[in-house]
């Protein structure tokens, strides 16, 4: 058993991938919690797909692909906010439109610019390619974003709970929105290599949703979510190694399994365990 656990770690690429997996397992649920409580889970998906054109352009111009991805992710968030505020179009339609258009643009650019960019790796995650530098980059992003969440926890809580109330009290809500979206984009960039942009939303949303069923406060949701995300990442890595399948889908399905377990067995809200089942309110 021990041998089974240790063997993959004798490869440097697996050690790197494991580190990146753990870091994004912690980071994604923390940032994802803020999306969930605003009922904006899908925004994570939109942002993830929207980094692609930036990646392609940055790769072509030989600038840091991190910068390209960041800029294009944040632009997509601003576009959605702009469409929402300037037109009658509802947010789900705006998201669907931006998401598919940015993704399409990304795929076109990668083809047109004849990038040697490995599209598949970005889409679904490729642990073989995780280098020491990637570990450092992901570590840096994780530290930065977690520090900012710690620093602005109260402001972000206020903004996501009662945006108008926050604005009425004079909090800079536009800056908070841009800051939050920057955090989401950085998180996606950090997780791109192990889970891929197509599936990263699962790690943003899955463990935090599971935690939502287990605890009653936002910060607990983040903590429990981070724990579940880490476990899912580690288990996903091993599965990927031994079954020789992409790591992204493994992580996603394991985190979904956790969710189903919580739905059935959550002490307070589980379908099979809650003592008194209160009917779901229909508001």
């Amino acid at each position: 058993m021990l041998q089974w656990l240790l063997e993959p770690l004798s490869f440097e690429f697996m050690r790197n991938a494991m580190m990146v997996g753990i870091l994004s397992g912690i980071l994604c649920p923390v940032v994802g919690s803020y999306l969930l409580v605003q009922r904006m889970a899908l925004l994570g998906d939109v942002m993830a797909h929207s980094v692609l054109p930036g990646l392609a352009i940055a790769f072509f111009l030989k600038i840091n692909i991190l910068i390209g991805a960041f800029v294009s992710g944040v632009i997509s968030a601003l576009l959605i906010a702009w469409i929402r505020s300037q037109t009658r179009v509802k947010v789900d339609a705006a998201m669907a439109l931006i998401f598919s258009s940015f993704f399409a643009l990304g795929v076109l650019l990668i083809t047109l610019l004849r990038n040697k960019l490995e599209l598949d790796g970005f889409l679904f995650g490729d642990i073989l390619g995780v280098s020491q530098a990637d570990v450092l980059r992901t570590g840096g992003i994780t530290l930065l974003v977690l520090a900012l969440v710690r620093l602005f926890y109260q402001e972000l809580f206020f903004y996501t709970f009662d945006r108008l109330g926050a604005q009425a009290m004079g909090l800079p809500i536009n800056a908070i929105y841009v800051g939050l979206m920057s955090g989401v984009t950085l998180t996606i960039i950090a997780s791109m290599q192990t889970i891929g942009v197509v599936l990263v939303v699962a790690l943003l949303v899955g463990p935090a949703t599971t935690a939502y069923l287990l605890v009653k406060e936002l910060h607990q949701m983040m903590a429990v979510g981070a724990l579940l995300g880490t476990i899912a990442s580690i288990m996903g890595m091993y599965t990927s190694y031994y079954l020789n399948v992409p790591s992204g889908p493994c992580i996603v399905l394991i985190s979904f399994a956790f969710f189903m377990l919580a739905v059935l067995f959550s002490p307070s809200q589980g379908l099979l365990t809650a003592k008194t089942r209160s009917p779901k309110p229909t508001s």
Binding site: E155, F158, D162, A166, M169, E217
Partner: peptide, 16 residues
């Protein structure tokens, strides 16, 4: 449905 408690909501008043 926001995951938070009575205390935290009232504490928002002190944000600034």
């Amino acid at each position: 449905d926001y995951p938070t408690t009575v205390w935290n909501v009232v504490m928002l008043a002190r944000s600034r």
